[in-house]
Amino acid sequence: MKAPLGVVLAGGLASRMGGGDKGLLKVRGQSLLARVIDRLQPQVAELALNANGDAARFDAFGLPVLRDSIDGFPGPLAGVLAGLDWAAAQGADSIVTAAADTPFFPADLVPQLQLAGEGMAAPLVLAATPDARRGRLRHPTFGLWPVALREDLRAALQDGLRKVVLWTDRHGGREALFDADGFDPFFNVNTPEDLKRAETMLGQTL
């Protein structure tokens, strides 16, 4: 199966961390973004970052930096669209996205997303984990996205759509279920307390 391109979504406002780039915060001497890159890069054909502002702050990573084409920080779907436009220019069929503040996501993220999308004309799949109340909890920044739907996504964003699952449900999006027994692989760093927890979790997984 052809490997998709990868896009790390690093365009959030990080308001609960006091602003700035969460991905550049360090855990045990390595930035969250570097840990995400190390985890995603082996699973994809090429990798880029989605971020706004001065791209030079990411120069050390040596990756293309893709700006949102929709103004006003409309959320992760704008980053997905930027990634799809980049992929289209490369002649690729799809991208897989990962959040820059989620350093423990599964090392088999891409193959499991692709497996869940088998048989779909335009594979559209979100990662999910079991949830006691809702059955499954979807993780909208971790997904497989088809280039074929990029103009539909652009139109939806221009019409004001912001919620990822509303758009994926509209197109019959599927879910790839990942184990979260005793450990949430999609734990993300939103607060200073989360950063301390990530330090602890990393110590437990070493």
Rank of each mutant, 00 (worst) to 15 (best):
D152A: 15
P146K: 02
R138F: 11
W145K: 03
L153M: 09
L161N: 12
W167S: 07
H171K: 09
R154F: 08
T141G: 15
L157D: 06
G173S: 10
A148L: 03
T141H: 15
A132F: 01
P146D: 03
A156E: 10
A156S: 15
L157W: 02
E151D: 14
V164A: 14
G135R: 05
V147M: 00
L166H: 15
L137Y: 10
R134S: 06
E151W: 08
R133F: 00
R170T: 12
G160A: 07
L137K: 10
E151N: 11
P146Q: 01
D131R: 04
W145D: 03
R170L: 13
P140C: 10
P130E: 00
H171V: 07
G160P: 04
F142S: 02
L149P: 00
K163T: 14
H139W: 15
L153V: 08
R150I: 04
L149G: 02
V165N: 14
W145A: 04
T168Q: 07
R138N: 10
A156F: 08
R134I: 02
R136D: 09
L137S: 08
L144F: 04
L137F: 11
R134Y: 02
V165K: 14
W167E: 05
A156I: 08
G135K: 07
A132Y: 04
G143Q: 05
K163S: 15
D131P: 02
H171N: 09
R154Y: 10
H171W: 09
P140N: 12
F142T: 04
G173L: 05
R170D: 13
L166V: 14
A155N: 13
R134G: 01
V165I: 13
D131C: 07
A155S: 15
P130F: 00
L144D: 00
T141Y: 14
G173H: 02
Q158A: 14
L166K: 15
R162D: 09
L149Q: 00
A148C: 05
R134N: 05
A148T: 01
R138K: 12
R150V: 05
P140K: 09
R138Q: 12
D131A: 01
T141Q: 14
T168K: 05
R133T: 05
V164P: 08
L144R: 01
F142Y: 09
L144E: 01
T168C: 08
H139M: 11
R170I: 10
P130K: 00
R134V: 00
